[in-house]
């Protein structure tokens, strides 16, 4: 039933039939939640609820999305996609304290979750817990961290040091980052801004002259502000498979009831 209503919801949404879509959504989520309670740990209740929440958040219904993600976590407290999605939704709503707590739970469960660690560090900084945030960022600069996370961690570390007026440290961190990622335009601009604050005018111009050409692909800062990868494609395909199976079983059940 949950999967059937989820399909109906998407179909109504595509035809801009808002009230029908909302009704189908409610039925889908309620059914998924009920099944989750009856069969804890089943493999589609939480993915379905997270997928619906992400759709809601992307349609600017952030508060409803957060409520649904919290319901998902009550059902499955260790659901990583739900934790990441809730953290992101809170972060976008500038609820940094709660976002940090949510990412903290995620990182506890998955210490190797690099994106979660980055988001945790940044939200700690925004709530004033700068030393913890700084340590978190420094921990992401080494090998083994995805490039976009390491690049962003380095930029944010430099920004933190600038904000704390530790300009010597900031300059050192920027230069070290540029040795690792010489094509990072943002980092060159940060270096120029440090040199400007230090009154080192000729070096400012040198840094700006060294600005590399724009890189292809999504910039790390843009990627950070987009919805994180929740494995949505994989879970959507799994939900599709389940839906097809469920629909044929539902049809058979209806035929049986008809007899």
């Amino acid at each position: 039933m949950a999967l059937l209503h989820r399909r109906l919801e998407r179909s109504y949404s595509a035809r801009s039939q808002g009230p029908l879509a909302a009704h189908a959504r409610t039925l889908a989520v309620d059914a998924a939640e009920r099944l989750g309670r009856l069969q804890p740990g089943n493999d589609f209740s939480a993915p379905l609820m997270v997928a619906v929440a992400v759709d809601l958040a992307q349609a600017n219904a952030g508060a409803t999305a957060r409520e649904l993600l919290e319901r998902t976590l009550r059902l499955e407290p260790d659901c990583e996609p739900a934790l990441l999605a809730l953290g992101f939704s809170l972060e976008r709503a500038a609820e940094h304290q709660q976002a940090a707590a949510t990412y903290g739970r995620l990182v506890e469960l998955r210490p190797d979750h690099h994106e979660g660690r980055l988001r945790l560090a940044l939200n700690l900084i925004r709530t004033g817990r700068r030393p913890e945030g700084e340590a978190g960022l420094r921990g992401l600069l080494g090998a083994g961290t995805p490039t976009w996370v390491a690049t962003l961690a380095a930029q944010e570390l430099v920004r933190l040091l600038i904000a704390e007026e530790r300009l010597e440290d900031a300059g050192e961190a920027a230069r070290a980052a540029l040795l690792r990622t010489p094509g990072d335009q943002r980092q060159w601009i940060l270096l120029a801004s440090i040199l400007h604050s230090q009154g080192r005018r000729p070096e400012v111009l040198e840094a700006l002259r060294a600005l590399p050409a724009a890189s292809r692909g999504v910039a790390p800062r843009a990627r950070y502000s987009e919805w994180p990868d929740l494995g949505a494609a994989a879970s959507q395909s799994r939900l599709g498979e389940l839906a097809r199976g469920a629909e044929s079983r539902l049809a058979a059940a209806l035929v049986e009831i008809g007899r």
Binding site: I189, A192, H196, R201, L205, L208, V218, A222, S225
Partner: peptide, 19 residues
């Protein structure tokens, strides 16, 4: 396409003009 880094670009422009 993409996002907007207006402040960075303004900073660069003002710095280059200082010359």
């Amino acid at each position: 396409r993409g996002g907007t880094a207006l402040t960075d670009s303004l900073f660069v422009a003002l710095q280059l003009l200082e010359e």
